[in-house]
């Protein structure tokens, strides 16, 4: 039985990484950054939130947008999963529904980069069971 030594492999990755990429410290002045929260409860995961999250994290970094992508629980909009909440600096948070990779791309290009609203916004007056009670 061959035991794979992940440790040695990891060291190799570290050395390769240290050549070019300088790891940034995020979250120090979070209110100046774009904040994206992806709902990652059972409903979100079953609808493809993992792909959406991976796409957002990779694309925002590659396209040079200073953003913090985090995960959150179910926001109560299970019918519209995957849902994401985007907060631009100094603006109110906006929740978008049915965010597949294509929609996420549109949100980055139009809303996050340009401040232009796109279809798929879940209005703030929508009531979850929690707020009704």
């Amino acid at each position: 039985m061959e035991k794979i030594r992940s440790l040695a492999d990891l060291k190799k990755i570290r050395d390769e990484n240290n050549k070019g990429v300088e790891l940034r410290k995020k979250g120090e002045d979070a209110d100046k950054l774009v904040q994206v929260k992806v709902a990652m409860a059972t409903c979100g995961i079953a609808s493809g939130a993992k792909e959406t999250m991976e796409f957002l994290a990779d694309s925002l970094e590659k396209r040079g947008v200073e953003a913090v992508v985090t995960q959150t629980g179910c926001m109560g909009y299970c019918y519209a999963e995957p849902t994401i909440e985007v907060t631009l600096p100094g603006r109110d948070p906006i929740v978008f529904g049915n965010v597949n990779v294509k929609k996420a791309d549109e949100i980055i290009e139009k809303y996050i980069k340009g401040g232009e609203l796109v279809d798929g916004i879940i209005p703030v007056n929508y009531e979850t069971i929690d707020s009704k009670e």
Binding site: M1, E2, K3, I4, S6, L7, L10, K11, I13, R14, N17, V21, L23, R24, K25, K26, A57, D58, E61, K62
Partner: peptide, 26 residues
């Protein structure tokens, strides 16, 4: 056929980083 293991704590230590949330590293 064999086994494989990885731990995030060990990965952070070995790579000498505070977090693993960097696109190239991921």
């Amino acid at each position: 056929k064999g086994d494989f293991e990885i731990s995030s704590e060990l990965a952070r230590q070995e790579l000498e980083v505070e977090h693993l949330n960097e696109s190239a590293l991921r």
